[in-house]
Design a protein around this nucleic acid. Sequence first.
DNA 1: TACTGATGATCAGTATACTTGTCAATTTAG
DNA 2: CTAAATTGACAAGTATACTGATCATCAGTA
Lengths: 153, 153
Amino acid sequence: MIAEVLNRPGHLARRFQQIAVSVFVAEAEAAGYDLTPVQYAALAAVKAHKGIDQATLAGLIAYDRTTIGGVVDRLEQKGLVSRRVSKEDRRARVLEITPLGKRTLVGIEPAVAAAQKAMLRGLDASEAATLLRLLRKAIDASNELSRAPMREG
Amino acid sequence: MIAEVLNRPGHLARRFQQIAVSVFVAEAEAAGYDLTPVQYAALAAVKAHKGIDQATLAGLIAYDRTTIGGVVDRLEQKGLVSRRVSKEDRRARVLEITPLGKRTLVGIEPAVAAAQKAMLRGLDASEAATLLRLLRKAIDASNELSRAPMREG
DNA sequence: TACTGATGATCAGTATACTTGTCAATTTAG
DNA sequence: CTAAATTGACAAGTATACTGATCATCAGTA
């Protein structure tokens, strides 16, 4: 049997993430939005940190700096974010959320909430809280082991 | 602040999975193996189920049917798995682990164990057990919400 | 000031993970 | 027993997530 493999933390992490993405995309689509979890998180971060550059944004939500380029490309293409060269540092691209981006964040919120609930539907409130707490704890302790660690903003 | 986004289960799932993959690849590489977590799980499943076809393999470890094709391609290219057309069903590709594949699974085991330990290093034994139990429970309850649900066992 | 190093971003390349569509082979329905 | 539905696999396309390399710019120092 391969139960040993299927019960390893790495495999469970992959499965849970797989379900989380599926649920998010399904809820967003049902609500009429074409936004992935990654794009959503980036958009929310840009809103919360006006004028942030891509590298700082990547550190904030723990994305690889190469990956963030493509994500921002798509957000820009959808008109949710604007990107321009910084005046202080001409290497940097300064990001800002557009009015459409703001409306999108507000409008998609119920779908996001529904998705977060759906992926925990097998757990009661206490279990869900425990799972999130332990996930946070494990992540915090291993942050530096990731190739794209979270960097405080 | 974007703490609300960063503390959502979906984001934590992504971060934990991200760390799990990084740790696995790093440990495997340090041990002299070029194998990803996905390839490892597929290889272990092929060993445990001789003569399995790709679709059944995909269901067993909850991979997308299309994804498994590329994974098996790489395993075959590395000489870890052999693939041939089934005699009972000529649509199917029958998979078998090679001697090199078996040696690889044995040899990489310490690195896999080290990786699983590393990604839980922030938790004590009791917390780790709880996290895995709750992850399993959440996954089981939402299995069908995934695009590539686990099939059979 | 010139040099050195660090940093922001991008490009090319690889690997997952999924979509839709297609094809061939098999199974089931009528 | 044929027609319809299903299934296994692949192809093309998109999105995340990295590697390593390169380029431009900026910051520090000698």
